[in-house]
Amino acid sequence: MSTITATSSSTGTPIRQRRSTPLRRRLARIPMYVVVAIVLVIFVYPLIWLLLGSLKTQDEFLNNPTWALPENWLNFSNYVTAWSSVSKYLLNSVLTVIPSLLIALLIGTAAGFALEVMIFRGRRQILLLFLVGIMIPGQMILLPLFTVYFTAGLSSSLWPLIITYTATALPLTVFMMATYFHAIPREIFEASTLDGAGIIRSFFSVALPMMRNAIFTIALVQFFFLWNDLLIALTFTTDDSLRTIQVGLLNFTGRFGVVDYGPTFAAICINVIIILVLYMFLNQRVVKGLTAGAVKG
């Protein structure tokens, strides 16, 4: 958690002024501190409760009060049970999300570059066409895609997910990249072509390195969208061996949930911890990227 505190915002009043606040005004602030404390509890305690639960035995779940601490803090047997089925779901998630993400970033950045830096008729209209994809509910494309994947015999592979994820990640990637390229003067790319290199070379050797940060931010945002997806994964995974972590987790709790608390808590925990680790190191970028995506979308 220490990484979260390390970064602090620059807004606010000078410290000197705050120190000199009279006692009465400081007392008047107490109710607000209570509000802050309640907010903290509401946001943190459920997650701590989940983590503690994942270390409890079935016996503790049935006999101890729900807020009791685990009797054995090193009881990882639930994780062992959960891992045996969750690990293959995790692998499926990695195998679908990472390739889609890389392809979408590459061709999306190229398209953003073309639409914002290159000059040709109709580029505004094409950008608007990509915007349609942000607006339309996913339900509009599921059924035709299912028909195509089924007829093409792709249903028993991860390809339907990779293809659909790549495409659904494109609209926002193209749009955000176009906005980032908009801030950069065209002359830079023109100048880089003067020494004989073509504009394609200039895209790879100048534009891509220059946009490293922006691309990384978009990659993070898209990672969360794809990793957390349920609708697409649910539709196209017809077989247990193809399930992603989200679909697998739903199925897992369907099987264990009612009778076996510990493994269920551990399985949910694994899903939360992966995201938590990413968030602990990259939270500032995640927050910025997600809110920027919203303002633009």
Binding site: I4, T5, T7, S8, S9, S10, T11, G12, T13, V36, V39, L40, F43, V44, P46, L47, L50, F224, W227, N228, L230, I245, Q246, L249, L250, T253, G257, T264, I268, N271, V272, I275, L276, L278, Y279, N283, Q284, V286, V287, L290
Partner: peptide, 26 residues
């Protein structure tokens, strides 16, 4: 909170990136 809001801001934001499935099961 003024200057010291960063920590709480980051914390309250966390559920946004959590998988919906994980939150629902929780």
């Amino acid at each position: 909170l003024k200057g010291s809001s960063s920590f709480i801001r980051t914390l309250v934001f966390f559920p946004v990136v959590l998988p919906t499935v994980a939150v629902s099961l929780l």
